[in-house]
């Protein structure tokens, strides 16, 4: 009986390790942009530079955080379903086609500034990093706790 109870507790803990620590990543654009909604697949195509123009004929400018950033790793895993290292092989192929990877900024503040000033710019941040310069077009839920990134802010 005791063994069964321990197993149930262990199972609940394992289940919680993925579900209880889920967090949201917000996909954001500048306030002036007219897109209302995006699907995850559309977002993936924008970040893979497969879709290069938006509905109003402006070029999409996807923005990434630096390769070592945990928020970028969680975002990449969610939309590509591959670790960001595997995606580098994809970018080698695109480079041969003359297509460059998304522009990289070093901080969330840098991302916010680019989103505010660059037409067609799209980026991602945590709910605690949201401010009035941008608006949300999609919310992604990832199986990882990113709350400590807010504490560092």
């Amino acid at each position: 009986m005791l063994l069964l109870r321990n197993r149930i507790i262990l199972s609940l803990l394992l289940l919680c390790s993925s579900a209880c620590f889920a967090d949201d990543i917000l996909i954001v654009m500048g306030q002036s942009y007219a897109v209302e909604k995006l699907s995850i697949k559309q977002l993936e195509n924008i970040y893979r530079r497969k879709t290069q123009l938006n509905q109003v004929g402006e070029r999409w400018n996807p923005i990434n955080l630096s390769a070592s950033d945990r928020l970028r790793a969680a975002f990449a895993q969610k939309i590509y379903q591959e670790p960001s290292e595997v995606m580098e092989a994809y970018w080698n192929t695109q480079y041969f086609q003359g297509i460059m990877p998304p522009y990289v900024v070093n901080s969330v503040e840098g991302m916010l500034r680019m989103l505010e000033t660059t037409p067609g710019a799209i980026g991602y941040l945590l709910p605690c990093q949201l401010d009035k310069r941008v608006r949300v077009v999609l919310k992604l839920t990832v199986n990882e706790s990113l709350a400590d990134l807010c504490e560092k802010k």
């Binding site: 480079y95 522009y103 840098g110 680019m114």
Partner: peptide, 29 residues
């Protein structure tokens, strides 16, 4: 006018020489 964040000249091995202001890239293999 737009991208004050971007460097005017940027080289990465395997990604070529990039001039963001001109949207120009020179690379190869």
């Amino acid at each position: 006018e737009h991208n004050s964040e971007q460097a005017w000249l940027d080289y990465h091995w395997g990604r070529g020489l990039n001039l963001p202001a001109l949207n120009l890239n020179i690379g190869g293999y």
